[in-house]
């Protein structure tokens, strides 16, 4: 594990050199949040209204946390680099090296997103205070548990992206599958909580990755309870185990299928 930690550390240090890029991304993030603020302020004509049990402040904080988890985890390594490595055949250079390509990519990915995630988290907190003020009855003491759930959400999201990128072993370009996954998370998971969906859809969404990637951690942030933490945490652990098994199987099968021309 030491070598993977070194990869993580090196990528992290490399990313510190490009901190200024993050500040430019901050503009798009802030204005995206601003659009959602305008939209929800319009929907809550009277701020004391409740929509499916959520007030305006909770709704905006929900959007902030889910968007922070989405923006903070967007990265070219898992979406483009992996697919390109497989497509171009340059993955062959990694296969004969004394490390696992999958863990190498995970370490690199986390090296790239650590700063980004912390940055978006801090920006989200600041924007939340500016736009709608603090959450009532926020469980400060439970913040470590909420952060654990958020980190697990990021890990599951990254693992799902790896599985999608590994499809490049069979289809040349896995990007369209990333779009669909992205939109699933964005449309169903970030703009509003699951409770706003029709009743018959809610159990399906609660079994989908949206529950463990976005909804769960954001729900804990705005309305923490031990019962929901237990449910979300157990679901997240099950998802991690299942996706790791799936990624390993797909990777092993894909590598056997790989056919690279010399050049």
């Amino acid at each position: 594990m030491k070598k993977y930690f070194s990869i993580y550390k090196m990528t992290l240090l490399e990313n510190i050199q490009y901190l200024s890029n993050l500040f430019f991304n901050f503009i798009t993030f802030t204005l995206t949040i601003y659009i959602f603020l305008c939209l929800w302020q319009y929907m809550y004509k009277d701020p004391s209204n409740l929509i499916e049990g959520y007030d305006l402040t909770q709704m905006i904080w929900y959007v902030l946390i889910t968007e922070c988890m989405w923006y903070g985890n967007r990265n070219k390594s898992l979406m483009e680099s992996m697919s390109n490595d497989i497509k171009s055949g340059s993955i062959a250079y990694n296969l004969n090296k004394p490390y696992s390509y999958l863990i190498f990519m995970i370490a690199k990915h986390f090296g790239e997103i650590t700063l980004k995630f912390i940055f978006y988290f801090i920006i989200s907190i600041i924007l939340g205070f500016i736009f709608v003020g603090p959450l009532d009855n926020f469980a400060f003491a439970m913040l470590p548990l909420i952060i654990i759930s958020m980190i697990l959400g990021v890990i599951i999201n990254s693992l799902i992206r790896i599985v999608i990128s590994l499809l490049s072993f069979w289809i040349e370009d896995s990007t369209p599958f990333h779009w669909i996954y992205d939109k699933l998370i964005l449309v169903i998971g970030t703009l509003f909580p699951v409770e706003l969906f029709p009743l018959f859809l809610q159990p399906i969404i609660k079994c989908s990755p949206i529950f463990v990637v976005n909804y769960g951690p954001a729900k804990l942030f705005i309305d923490f309870s031990f019962a929901s933490f237990r449910t979300i945490f157990v679901a997240q652990i099950i998802y991690v185990i299942l996706i790791v098994i799936l990624a390993t199987i797909i990777y092993r099968k894909g590598v056997k299928k790989l056919n690279v021309n010399g050049g």
């Binding site: 289809i171 370009d173 990007t175 779009w179 669909i180 939109k183 699933l184 449309v187 169903i188």
Partner: peptide, 15 residues
């Protein structure tokens, strides 16, 4: 695939 999935991608916003 690119064309069809982009149509699906946009259609998801109807939800």
């Amino acid at each position: 695939t690119n064309v069809l999935f982009m149509i699906l991608n946009n259609a998801s916003f109807i939800i």
